[in-house]
Amino acid sequence: MNEILDGVIKALQLIFSGDPKIYGIVSRSIFFSGTAIILAALWGIPIAMLLALKNYPGKTIIKGFFNSLMGIPTVALGLILFLIFSNAGPLGFLRLLYTPAAVILGQAILVTPIVISIATTAIEAVDPEIMSLAKTLGASESQASFAVLKEALGGVMLANTASFNRAIAELGVALLVGGNIAGLTDNLTTSISTYTQRGGSDLALAIALAIILLVIVFGINLILLIIQRLRK
């Protein structure tokens, strides 16, 4: 019990002492996951709009496909991407394996179904007259779609937050395609895993990183909640 308490105290000391190693890992994590959700939003939101606003055969199947992918195990996706990015894989020539780009791309792929599914539901929930309203006020098709997206902003923000949380908290993809290379591809989760396994004095480092991870996840949710309250 004392060891755990000691670990927590040391962890707090590390956090407040501004340890460069810790802040390197934290900033890398935020950068990887932040860039991943931007990428996922860039391709996920237009897909969500197509799914929510247009009618075509097979739409329900596509929606169901993305819904089921929301819970894909990260190690499974990590392994698939490892095989694709490895030298013998179809994208081996890009030399992406064990680079930050591989982690970012992997996390973006991981969270894309979350962005698509939540954003689709949010866009579908917008008053169907908004599209016609924007048009009758002079909007083009794309301007009217943008007006609908603006109305669904709360849900789209929720989609991005959920995606960020999933990306920053996942281990499988970052570990398998990033390789946990110190100072290059190591992030919060891969580092927590490594330092916990090492034990001893490194356990405090793992606890510090876990505390920071939890603060980030809860903090972002709190900010979203406050923004949604203010919008209402």
Binding site: S132, L133, K135, T136, L137, G138, A147, E151, R231
Partner: peptide, 19 residues
């Protein structure tokens, strides 16, 4: 049609407003 739309506007029965 898009140009014509600029010259004719409609107010719906069920009031639709932007948030």
């Amino acid at each position: 049609a898009e140009r014509m739309r600029m010259q004719s506007t409609m107010v719906f029965q069920k009031t639709a407003l932007f948030s």
